[in-house]
Design a protein around this nucleic acid. Structure first.
Lengths: 250, 250
DNA sequence: CGAACGGTTGATTTGTATCAAGAATCGTGG
DNA sequence: CCACGATTCTTGATACAAATCAACCGTTCG
């Protein structure tokens, strides 16, 4: 079971063909509403490593991740960094009602955004109930995810943190919750060891050691450092420290 | 500068007199909308230590904290616990659109809630735009707060965590951001050492040691263990590890 | 080719957890 | 009002997981 992120055809700017139309902020919009959004949107791509927004910046736009992976992070004066969100396709960037960003946003892989000017988008948000409805739902989902991450950061061991990260990426990239146990799962880890350490509140050395420990214990295999093959998904879930199956399998 | 949480007069069920009317989920509602909500609400009080909701429970109601302090937390199978939210007056409890709670909610002090049956409330949410608007705003604010907490949990030292908690409670209970430097600030810490440790991702022993270290260094004074007097607020802010003034003073 | 980057591995240090004992405080009932 | 048992808090000794410091390897790319 392997899935690659489909490349966005730059010629196609038709929302009907959009790979994230069922999950993005516009998911509940009707045809007529989509037509309005369609006139306002514009695509922009960023190369891996590019900064999309700096903390404190004035934010002129908001938008959705269409393809690629971005990250939301926070930096302390002395350089300590904590990633506070991993932005995958359909995730929303920017905060309506606020002109400056509280966080840095960077492209982890090449990223394509579907962008809207912030002011007009805020107007749409009050004009189109379906948009606000989906926006609220997404915000509440992200809040739940952030709170789960707080448990990870505050209470889990390094081993549990790594296993949790791998399980979450596997799930989000592969829709693992629909697969049976025993099927082998593989995915591209689009994060460097350093990026993982920033997400997990660890050092990159600890990340490296734990990943190699999981490899030695035959829970996972590595291919070219960034591609993970999970030999034993049930075991990986055990290693997360979450109860039983973490709710993903049942 | 000292402030006590005003006690809710149980006889007063009039929204006009509500101490949280300017910040709660109903804050943007007009008179006519308030009248509808008024017919649906009911107050309920919980004693300190009571459980308000268990994780996994079916949630029949949602509501706002009117007085007191509650906490939102998550527990692992082996008993490790992480608080993921501190609920102060005006904060919202429950998630519209979801029937079961992902977290435990407990009363830390005596708590009064203004409750609504979940189903009718969800109907109101779609009927009253002002309600949905405020709800979205509150969710986004909480998301920002959760992400700041992730930085604390993932990257801050024990000392910085304690200083950050004290600064945040001082700010939320006393509106410290409007006071001048040098004025002494005092407040009741409505959390036990154990509750603090659950919030900060530490053990209670470490919390105790750090608080007493701050006392020995004359940053704070203690009165009866739970009442904090801040001798040097600027110093406390320095100890949080946040840049300069954390944006609270300027 | 050599520099830059990402990753691994080892030796050592250190901050916090853990284990343990006792002191202070609170609540309750006699 | 005092005595008690139960919490809550403090303090000390020790253990340990992860950070830090350091060296080195493999790729990639100009």
């Amino acid at each position: 079971m392997k899935m690659t992120t489909p490349a966005l055809n730059p010629a196609s700017t038709n929302c009907d063909d959009c790979p994230i139309k069922h999950r993005a902020v516009c998911a509940y919009c009707e045809k007529s509403e989509m037509l309005i959004l369609e006139t306002m949107k514009s695509y922009k791509t960023y190369s891996a490593g590019d900064s999309i927004i700096f903390a404190g910046d004035n934010m002129q736009f908001v938008g959705s991740v269409v393809t690629g992976v971005a990250r939301l992070s926070q930096t302390m004066e002395d350089g300590r960094r904590q990633m506070v969100g991993l932005l995958l396709p359909s995730d929303f960037i920017g905060r309506p009602g606020r002109s400056h960003s509280a966080f840095d946003v960077e492209a982890t892989t090449d990223v394509t955004l579907c962008r809207f000017e912030r002011k007009p988008f805020e107007k749409m948000l009050s004009d189109i109930p379906h948009l606000r409805e989906r926006m609220l739902e997404m915000a509440l989902d992200e809040l739940d995810a952030a709170r789960e991450w707080m448990l990870l950061l505050g209470r889990k061991t390094a081993r549990e943190k790594i296993a949790s990260l791998l399980a979450i990426i596997a799930r989000r990239q592969n829709a693992v919750h629909t697969t049976e146990l025993g099927i082998d799962v593989s995915f591209d880890l689009s994060l460097t060891r350093e990026a993982m350490s920033e997400y997990l509140g660890l050092t990159l050395e600890t990340v490296s050691r734990q990943i190699n420990a999981l490899k030695k214990e035959n829970v996972i295999k590595l291919e070219k450092k960034r591609h993970i093959i999970v030999n034993d998904f049930a075991r990986l879930l055990m290693e997360t420290g979450d109860d039983a199956d973490g709710g993903y399998l049942s």
